[in-house]
Design a binder for these strands. Structure first.
Lengths: 345, 345
DNA sequence: TTGTAAGCGTTATCAC
DNA sequence: GTGATAACGCTTACAA
């Protein structure tokens, strides 16, 4: 039996087994320096046979590079973020990077702590996802000056990958107008300090104006509750509204996010208004479950996975120095996904 | 300005600043050895002021412990897994551990690779989530002999946290029977080698028998498609069935997982059968979106977050040696969450 | 083409 | 109470 209680072996052991020095092993494995084919072959075989894996710790320590990137996100359970992360992960795998995810529970303080922690891990760079409005400056605590890329968050002097929330929301209004809707309600949040949401609201108003429609604050339902449990918040607001006013004042409704749109659909349906028969609904984000809802949700797609991929690409090219990090942000295209929840007025 | 281009400083720098040796700094920070209060105070202040963070790499190298645990999961985007991970994460944060997640895309080979990679990172232990039926033995490649805990997966000689899938599914049948249903359909997968799913099917059959109902293969719809896109697979199977046979042959239906139940609800609704009016539907898992569906899904809850938490606790106590790792599995309770999709026959 | 040895930033052992 | 110093496992000059 060759494999009884073999302990983790290190480069020295391997060197001894191959009858060469550690530097030869190192070079054979990394290909940095030329090693006689026969020797190299032998080393590779031994490494294979014994499942040799160089210690990330030792290597990281001596090279000051780890092939690890830190990803910071507010919430591991939010499908929007996890889809972005999937994009990052796919790209990272391709280039042999490991990602480590820090989650902040939407909290600025925890965000900073996670940053510190991952920084101490000697990550080669960061991708920071999401649009919390933080008060501390990353550049101040980024003592190792590793590259930073933001996704879905705009930070001065840092590269980000974004969508144009305002324009995207305008498109949603345009779309509804093209379906001949004249009274379009809006359900969302205000005062969150989340710039993306503010931009969406702006887009709603701008879209109305562009299409010659007047803004009516009565049918613009905004909550300033904490950002969580959006489904119930949206449901509650709209349900109350419908009980008091019926649905005569609008023929279409935009949810600031898909979850909000779901809440609205349920409120509508529970108040016996047909979607899309009496009221059309459109959401924003195109999260997974909008394919499953009843009716399937028409929504504004954010290319989440692609955002992650592109963010990762930007980061990796900055890390590997192919080009100096570009502080320009990239904006990705959004598009309306027509499904079942919106129809002709 | 005190903070201009200060580079990352290390323990030596700090020692110099404090006028003491590195070992004193180390001891002051870790508290392992006693340090004169005044000195300690000074060191702590300096550390604070300069945002000193000990290098995880260096520490990991010399202690062979990293306070990092590896979490391996099939799919970062699957809400079932991410909820488990949230539980792990919460527990890890509390104990000062960092988690690093490896994703395998449901692939055995990738699972092994992730294990290797994280092992090279010198993680202190692993939590492996999900029920792929892998063919390699972890114990063989676990060269550093770190503790392993499985969640939602049974592995011989290793501790796991599980639910009793068979019993849980029986409960679902019981529940439907208590609603006086006599003809209960089942939609799921077969031949996946995923033991949990096989147990669920067993539970369905056992539940039928227990309630004096005959198993009818006509209304047990099983797919052997690849496990992905379950919504559409379920939708397709049931839609075809309904078009050919109508829905007279059953008054209730169990989806092997919530997503499957969603697919079934849509197929039912698109074929103009009312849920729960004509057919009651119950799912399994209680993922987030089952609260949002229309109708809201009645389903079997798995305590996912708790499973993660408990798995993490087991792992940490094994790591810290409070008790020898227990190879006994723990089974958590499942419960039916009554919502709207199931009613009296 | 290969080997030797210094160094990466910590902690642990042993002196003092 | 505190300070040298040798590990930890790797990479990389510098020699040979």
């Amino acid at each position: 039996m060759e494999n009884e209680t073999k302990k983790q072996l290190n480069i020295k052991d391997l060197a001894r087994l191959a009858g060469v020095s550690t530097s030869t092993v190192s070079n054979a494995l990394s290909g940095r320096r030329h090693v006689k084919p026969a020797t190299k072959q032998k080393i590779l075989e031994l490494a294979q046979q014994y499942h040799y894996q160089p210690s990330v710790m030792a290597r990281g320590l001596c090279r000051q590079k780890t092939k690890i990137i830190g990803v910071i996100t507010a919430d591991l359970y939010n499908p929007y973020y996890t889809e972005v992360i999937k994009g990052i992960d796919a790209q990272a795998k391709q280039l042999g990077y490991t990602i480590v995810i820090g989650s902040t529970n939407y909290d600025d303080y925890q965000e900073m702590e996670e940053f510190r922690k991952l920084n101490a891990l000697c990550v080669d760079g960061f991708i920071i996802i999401g649009s919390q409005n933080t008060h501390f400056r990353f550049s101040e605590i980024n003592s190792r000056k590793v590259p930073l890329v933001f996704v879905d968050r705009e930070v001065k002097n840092h590269p980000s990958v974004l969508i144009d929330n305002k324009a995207a929301m305008m498109k949603a209004v345009d779309y509804l107008c093209s379906l001949r809707h004249k009274k379009i309600a809006y359900v969302g949040y205000q005062g969150t300090n989340i710039i993306n949401l503010e931009k969406r609201l702006e887009g709603y108003k701008a879209g109305l104006k562009k299409n010659g429609l007047a803004f009516n604050s009565k049918i613009c339902l905004l909550s300033n509750a904490l950002l969580s449990n959006e489904f119930n918040v949206a449901y509650g607001m709209l349900d109350t509204y419908l009980k008091n006013n019926g649905c005569a004042s609008f023929s279409a409704l935009i949810g600031e996010a898909d979850i909000i749109a779901f809440g609205c659909m349920r409120a509508l349906q529970d108040n016996h208004v047909k979607v899309p028969g009496q009221v059309s609904v459109v959401g924003f984000d195109n999260i997974h479950s909008s394919k499953f809802s009843n009716p399937r949700l028409t929504t504004v797609n954010q290319p989440k996975k692609k955002m992650g991929k592109i963010g990762a690409k930007m980061l990796f090219s900055a890390i590997e120095g192919h080009r100096k990090i570009n502080t320009n942000s990239v904006y990705l295209k959004t598009v309306i996904v027509e499904r079942e929840s919106a129809g002709l007025a």
